[in-house]
Simulated assay, not measured.
Amino acid sequence: MARDNPVRTGVHSKTDEPLPNLVTIVGRGVPASFEVTVDGEIEAESDDPVSDTTIVSGSSAEGMIEVGVTRLRFSGELANVHLADWNGTPAPESASTPSVHVEYNV
């Protein structure tokens, strides 16, 4: 399946300034999936989000994480975060789901 703009960086396409807000997803050593939706724009901060298994489309991003961190920059407000461990058990029912940190205006 083809996507428009398959790789996006953390630089806002309209102003060349980074989007003002940051969400950081931290893996806990167990494969897990995440989906983040905002009411503005969202972009992966990685130089190569495809290799980081992060897909950005419209105002949402989704991907997989096991270890390390995934950072996404966004404008507007965070609308929804969905996390699930490798068994599909959602947070907060599973201690294996990644942790999420949100910072505004950074």
Rank of each mutant, 00 (worst) to 15 (best):
A84H: 05
N80K: 12
P98H: 14
S59D: 11
E66W: 08
E41Y: 12
D16M: 09
H12D: 15
F74M: 02
V26P: 00
V26M: 01
F34M: 02
V69I: 08
I25R: 04
V102N: 10
I25V: 08
G68Q: 09
G68R: 11
T15L: 06
P92Q: 11
E77I: 00
S75V: 11
L22W: 13
V26D: 04
E35C: 02
R8S: 11
E93S: 08
V100C: 05
E45W: 14
P20N: 01
V7P: 01
V106T: 05
T53L: 05
G10I: 09
P18D: 15
S46Q: 08
G58V: 05
G63L: 05
I65G: 00
N80A: 05
D48V: 06
T37P: 00
N21G: 11
V50Y: 06
R8Q: 15
I25N: 02
D39Q: 04
P6K: 09
H12A: 04
D39W: 10
T15I: 00
S96Q: 05
T37V: 04
S59A: 08
N80W: 12
A91D: 05
D85W: 14
M1K: 03
T24R: 06
L83W: 14
S57N: 12
A44E: 07
D47G: 09
R3F: 10
T89L: 06
D47T: 04
S96K: 13
M1A: 00
P92R: 08
A44S: 14
G88R: 08
V30R: 01
E93T: 05
T53E: 08
W86G: 01
P31C: 02
I25G: 00
G40S: 06
P90D: 07
L78A: 06
R3D: 04
N5L: 12
D52W: 11
N5M: 04
T89A: 02
T97Q: 05
I65R: 02
V56G: 09
S51H: 15
H12G: 07
G68W: 14
R3A: 13
A44R: 01
S59H: 14
N5C: 01
E45Q: 10
N105L: 11
M1P: 01
S13C: 06
P31V: 02
A44V: 09
E93Y: 15
A95K: 15
M1D: 07
S57Y: 13
D4T: 13
R71A: 10
M64P: 00
N105C: 04
T54V: 15
T89I: 14
V102Y: 05
V36Q: 05
A32N: 13
V7G: 05
E93D: 15
L83G: 08
E66M: 09
A61I: 01
K14D: 11
S59Q: 14
N87I: 01
D52C: 07
G76M: 15
Y104K: 10
A44P: 00
D16R: 15
V23E: 07
P49V: 15
E62K: 01
P98R: 15
H12I: 06
I42E: 12
R73Y: 07
N87F: 03
V106I: 11
P6L: 03
T37S: 04
H82P: 00
S57H: 10
T53Q: 13
A95M: 09
E43H: 07
D47R: 07
A44G: 09
H12M: 13
P18M: 13
L19E: 10
E41M: 07
E45H: 14
V26L: 08
